Amino acid sequence: MTAPPRLTPAQIVALGPLGSVSPELRRALSGAGFEPMPQPAEGDWLACHPERGQKYAEFVAEKPLVPDETRRTLALLPLGVPARPGIPRPGLLRDALEAFYALPARLLPRVPLAEVGMRTRINPHTGKVQLYTPHILAFLKQRLPPDVFALAAITGEDLYPDESWNFVFGIATPRHRVGVFSFARYDPAFDDEPFHPGDEKLVLRRMIKVLVHEVGHMFGLRHCIYFSCLMNGSNHIEEADARPQHVCPVCLRKLQHAIGFDVIRRYEALERFYEGAGLDDEAAWVAERLGEIRA
């Protein structure tokens, strides 16, 4: 079978043979509309954390945990005080999870930070409180409902995974299907800046990206090095902002293998969500992909 158009040899190898996929999925994986992975600059993720990537065949061979009839729901757990005005409500993030992963998602009751009982520290660079992620992950493992495949906690407090790290946007454990992410550094107030017109959508885009990125790790996806992709690693806010809102063909094939969704219906649900959330650029990108897939 001929290789899909628009793909480099490395991308074709990472994607794997497509003889067994449907015509619609094959068109979705063609490479149309996806940008190549940019060369990392000094301070970027790959410049500091060299990674070899994860081909589709490697993903399948690793036999990651996948949803089944018993555990086929995603859950979102707000942690700590409610977000201040301008920060997207958790229900909107729940809707994003449901559309992105084509699985039912529900919002759990908010949990006070004191109930978690975690270590904290003051970041020496920012002077702000940070929460120790291993203690949060241990708490979430105990709170994972039996019908939930993946549980993600969201918090407005900054996070750190180890004393040697400055901070982390989010972290997840595929084996235990739990993760936590912070919107602290996505809020202009973190740098003592006021909200400006348009900041609400910028914060929403940032929060959706880190949320679905961390949940992607719970499905067994590692950082992507083949395209500009939602699953790219990020070392700083500028690099995180540069990531697209979508997964690349390689990561899309992994998710479709794990979840078994209809690719057209998934994109249709994403288009409805983006339109409803006022994310016009993302809605237009999805509409263009649907045009390619239906052709």
Rank of each mutant, 00 (worst) to 15 (best):
P134R: 06
V247G: 00
D147K: 06
L144T: 05
W165G: 04
D262F: 07
K209T: 00
E292N: 14
I136A: 02
G276W: 10
I293G: 01
K209S: 00
D68R: 09
L46G: 07
A114H: 12
L140R: 03
S234P: 02
L137N: 06
R119T: 11
H217I: 06
E238S: 13
F34C: 05
R243K: 14
R143S: 06
A258L: 08
L230M: 07
I225G: 03
L252T: 09
K254E: 11
K63Q: 15
V203H: 01
V21L: 12
Q142E: 15
V66H: 03
G291P: 02
Q142V: 12
I154R: 01
L74K: 01
L159W: 02
G233K: 00
V168M: 08
I237P: 01
V129E: 15
V66A: 11
N166I: 14
D262M: 04
Y226R: 00
H125E: 15
R289F: 05
A184F: 06
A284T: 11
G156P: 00
M118P: 00
L113K: 06
F219A: 07
R243Y: 02
V286C: 05
G291A: 11
G117P: 08
R265L: 14
V21H: 09
G80P: 05
C48M: 15
F195P: 02
A75N: 01
D262V: 04
R272I: 12
A269S: 14
L211R: 01
R89P: 05
P124Y: 10
F59S: 03
A172Y: 01
